[in-house]
Design a protein around this nucleic acid. Structure first.
Lengths: 211, 211
DNA sequence: ACCTGAACACCGTTCAAGT
DNA sequence: ACCTGAACACCGTTCAAGT
């Protein structure tokens, strides 16, 4: 079985998803792959480069939804939903992406696509960039809140005690405890997405003349 | 000089802000404080608890803007801007907060305040929660994108090469390279915030009857 | 009883010694 | 020339040995 950069990164992704990011290390990865520790360094120059590779691999495997004959707001919505689906399917690997600056072409492909969608809809470059940045911020923050808080993703499975609050200091939070406990991540995500999309739809430029 | 949990966490925050999160460790913290390594463990039970303490201390020090006689949208805006100011003042410590579930009362105080603002404005508990979650997602994502990408915040000062892209594969991104290079974080942040607030203002409930 | 030095099992990375 | 075992300087945490 030949050692490859591809194989190393795939093993790292499996390990991250199985045991958490804390469990990943060069030593562990080497034993997992049954190869010498030092051999890894000829394919992956460092720890940090390994995580860049994981982020790139994950985002490259992320299939953008087909363009089809949809309106631009629906195209944006679909793309954002697809990203969130990936986050739910591979939460721990996605956290690596979220915490890493875009360091490779694979991570920018969805941005390019969104840019194309918005330019085609008639937005100028400046507006398209701003819109994408806002949407990315919302999506990243949602994913962070949704899966970053999930149990076991942090170190040591810290038993999350319910963190009981003094009602006198937190009257509203304690009053809404039951509403806060039952959460519907899908509905919450769609709600915030609609807030953004509703304002964006109102911003839609009048399409220049013909074609 | 008495050793205190307070002093330990303050030293950790200084160290994080000065040398980055990667540089923080129990060993290093002990030498920084001039105390024995093991002494730390009587005040901070673990590595992870230390970071929880940092997150809590930072958020507890975060001064909410006074309520004054503003409208609720302006109150929300001000609170969100205040958080972002803190993020800009202490970027590395803020990244700790962003990557950690709300683990203490200090981190929930701003949420309580926002909940009060929205309830007073006439929103029901469910709506208030959803709104806050959406706003938090946007703010967290913005901060993550804005300061998480900043140089030197990651490990080893990875020389950020400009990541040049092939124009044939990324026509829009390369065409907009100059627009992407000059970024105005304040304006970008406000733009996205207004997208949210604009939709929220349209959602404002008709205030029930009197008083 | 209390505090902590030395120790343990890890980690990323390097380098010289092997083939 | 190439690959890698052993080594180095770290890390979090523990425990028994000191006061």
């Amino acid at each position: 079985v030949q050692l490859t950069r591809r194989r190393i990164i795939a093993a790292a992704m499996d390990l991250i998803e199985r045991d958490g990011i804390q469990a990943v290390s060069m030593h562990r990865l080497a034993t997992e792959l049954g190869c010498g520790l030092v051999s890894l360094y000829s394919y992956v120059p460092s720890d940090s480069a390994l995580l860049d590779g994981v982020a790139d691999a994950l985002m490259s495997g992320f299939k953008l939804p087909p363009v089809g004959a949809r309106t631009w707001p629906e195209q944006i919505r679909e793309q954002v939903r697809a990203f969130r689906e990936m986050a739910r399917a591979r939460p721990r690997c996605t956290m690596v992406v979220v915490n890493r600056p875009p360091s490779s072409a694979g991570m920018l492909r969805p941005v390019e696509r969104a840019l194309a969608t918005l330019r085609e809809a008639g937005f100028c470059g400046q507006d398209a960039i701003r819109i994408i940045r806002a949407v990315i911020a919302y999506v990243m923050g949602s994913v962070l809140g949704e899966i970053g808080v999930a149990p076991g993703l942090d170190a040591h499975d810290t038993e999350k005690r319910p963190l009981c609050l003094r009602p006198c200091e937190f009257p509203h939070l304690t009053a809404l405890a039951t509403e806060l406990a039952v959460s519907n991540p899908d509905a919450d995500f769609e709600f915030g997405l609609e807030l953004l999309m509703h304002s964006l739809a109102a911003m839609q430029p009048t399409r220049a003349a013909a074609s």
